[in-house]
Computed example of a mutant assay.
Amino acid sequence: MRNAPSNADLAEKAESGSDSKSQPGSQTLLRGLDVIDAVIDGPITLAELAARLGLTRSTTHRLATALIDRRYLTFVPRLGYHFGPKLLELGFIAQQQTDVVQVARPHLEELAASTEDTVNLGILDNERALYLDKIPGRRRVEISSRVGDRRPLTSTGLGKALLLDDDAAHWRKLFDEDRAAGSPPADYAVWEERMRDYVAVGRAFDLEENEDLIRCVAAPIRDVSGRIVAAISVSSAAQYMADDRMQALSDDVRGTAKAISMDLGWSEGIARKPAPRSRR
């Protein structure tokens, strides 16, 4: 004679409910991932974890124990479950394997198609903006930037976007060095006032400062730590870049930079990380 199912068995069966047609292995995997997601905010007790997942304590304990065995979670008495060393290892490996050009490319293509203007991607390299990717626009406008070019930070929109987290002392140093190296003359007080405005809104402009009759809108890309690691820009002839259009493009450029940043692991809850004083 078979034993009647226990209350725990009935509850566990009820938990599967609409998932009853799913493959058991897939269901277990998804539940395990749900456990990991539930621990994101910090240590959590078994009772809290079970309640958050809508599972019985026995099922939750079984899933968590399996994750502890594989080092994805650890358990601290009186505190509860939190991330284990395996997730730290995987996060480091994922960051090492991430190629910003590869991650950004589909976003850049979409932005270029929607704006019909030239889109650039660049990083900071030895106090210059190094251009890593470029998608030409559909308009008959020649933008002189090339992949592999290294341009001044303080006279290009992309370069200024890379500097939004820097302090004023570093801005002044770079500004003076760029002018001494041949960048177009400019008034530092006006330049700094604009930079402070750019910091406040999270994007930068090039108002024909680097190339005559060429304007651009740029925004920074951040990594999982919140640090600026790259920037994008949309460039076109000044006739297509009236002030009101540059303002309108700001949302599109910031939105694209945000999407790339999120693909790199950044989230809106991560605060800006001040730029290190010495960077490659």
Rank of each mutant, 00 (worst) to 15 (best):
G32I: 07
T115H: 10
C216A: 15
E12R: 14
R78M: 05
L33T: 04
T98L: 01
I123M: 02
L130F: 14
V141R: 11
A230K: 12
L46A: 06
L73Q: 11
A94E: 15
L46V: 11
L90R: 13
E110M: 08
A47Q: 10
R57A: 10
L67H: 06
T45P: 01
G80A: 03
A248G: 02
A237L: 11
G148Q: 08
D167Y: 08
A237C: 07
G137N: 03
A275E: 08
G159H: 07
Q23H: 12
D251S: 14
A66Q: 15
D197Q: 15
I135Q: 13
S278W: 08
Q239S: 13
I232L: 08
E209V: 07
L153Q: 06
T154V: 05
F175M: 07
R52F: 00
P152Q: 03
S267W: 02
A189M: 05
E109I: 02
E127S: 12
G137Y: 04
S233T: 11
L108A: 01
T256D: 00
A218H: 08
V39L: 10
G54K: 13
G255T: 03
R277S: 15
I93N: 06
D166G: 02
R71G: 00
S250C: 08
R128V: 04
S225N: 09
L164P: 03
Y131L: 15
P220H: 06
D251Q: 12
